[in-house]
Amino acid sequence: MTVEFAASDRSTVGLEWELMLADPATGDLVGRAPELLEVLEANSAEERYTVTGELLTNTIEVTSGIGDSVAHAVDDIANAIAAVRTATDPAGVELLSAGSHPFAQWYDQEVTDKTRYHTLIERTQWWGRNMMIWGIHVHIGIEDQRKVIPIINALSAYLPHLQALSASSPFWAGERTGYASNRALVFQQLPTAGLPWQLQDWAAYEAYLDDMVRTGVMADATEVRWDIRPAPRWGTIEIRACDGLSTLPELAAVAALVQVLVEHLSREIDEGRERATMPSWYHRENKWRAARYGLDARLIVDAAGAQRPVRDHIAEVLDELAPVAVELGCVREFGSISTILSEGASYERQLTIANATGGDLRAVVQHLIREFRSGPEASTERP
């Protein structure tokens, strides 16, 4: 199977953000996306951003245009959210974002009436119906198809760092899970989801797709659901490991870290430097540790099995790659990663609210609604 990789400018940025729709009083999810999207999709037709539906009717997704910087793409997302609020505010619907909803139940949710979604649910059954998960996707432009697989292989070592920074799903269906990112482990239950296979080159990726399509595992490349995957149609690699970020500044921060990492790895390829690799079983263990412990995880950082606290390792990466952030024009957003490290990721803030209110998960949802509207500083407000 031959798969063409579209032309794309180097290190451009595209963002996708899945947003929950909730009742402002109860905090419960509401399946009102179909009625809201009738107007929103039409109104966004001439804009840089798009507003679309998702698997469940309780979700709206906003997508940026191609940004020549992180700020450019984030501005698109901000404009998209403002447009969405012109429909949701009058309709009495609130917005929030996290990897999971603290107390919603899968059997209360409706699947969007599209053939591909019904096909997915029919095949995956209980796991598919339990996909009450929300995330962000970060696209970075790659100018040379030959770089795609090597960058994906190298970037896989940083997926647990991104997962820990974005972790925002400590609750599931009304229970405290003990995980920072329960979403990460739920999502990998779908066919072709989870960590990417370590492939040698683009030809090996095409061979993989040929095997999957020929055996009926999937219809085409869009059904590859890896935590990081090629996006041939757009000429990008797409990072999908992150939980839904709870605020726009955090989305910008993670997007900047991804952009800087990809540009750094691209330069190493240009200079002919070979990246040190780790066995796939270390990558798998690191994913579990980041999901379980979030920013308190200790990660395996090399093939010899050396281990480091993820907070320390991220701080080292920030110091090492700061000059690249300057060149890409994302210093402010890149620097906000330090704020997440010092003030806590969304899962930590949610747990703080739950602990302060005797485990009241409705208070946690109201906290998330406030944060999404007002920013991380809203987390200091009592419900």
Results as ranks from 00 to 15, higher is better:
G174L: 14
G194H: 03
N130L: 08
P196V: 15
A184R: 08
A184H: 10
L195E: 04
G128W: 00
L155C: 04
G174F: 13
M132I: 13
T192Q: 14
D201Q: 05
G178Q: 01
S156K: 03
G128A: 02
Q198P: 15
W127Y: 15
A157S: 09
S156I: 08
V138M: 08
I133H: 03
Y158I: 04
A204V: 06
R129N: 05
W126F: 14
V138T: 08
W126P: 06
H137D: 05
A184W: 12
A167R: 06
R129H: 08
W134I: 08
S168N: 07
W126D: 12
E143K: 13
S156C: 11
Q145G: 13
L159A: 05
A193T: 07
L165R: 06
G135A: 00
S169F: 06
A207Y: 11
G194A: 05
L162Y: 03
A164N: 12
E206L: 13
E175R: 13
L190N: 08
S181L: 09
R146P: 00
F171T: 07
R176Y: 12
H161K: 10
Q145W: 12
P160R: 07
A157C: 10
W202P: 01
A157L: 11
R123L: 10
V138E: 00
I136A: 02
D201R: 03
L162A: 05
I142P: 04
A180I: 01
A207I: 14
A193I: 06
E206P: 02
D201Y: 02
W134M: 10
W172I: 09
L162R: 03
A157D: 04
M132Q: 10
A184P: 12
N130S: 06
H139I: 01
Q145C: 15
I142L: 05
A207F: 13
D144S: 09
Y208L: 14
I142D: 05
I151D: 00
E143C: 13
T192K: 12
I152H: 00
P196G: 11
P170S: 11
Q198V: 12
I152V: 05
M131W: 07
A193V: 06
H137L: 01
Q189P: 15
G135T: 03
S169Y: 08
Y205K: 06
G141W: 06
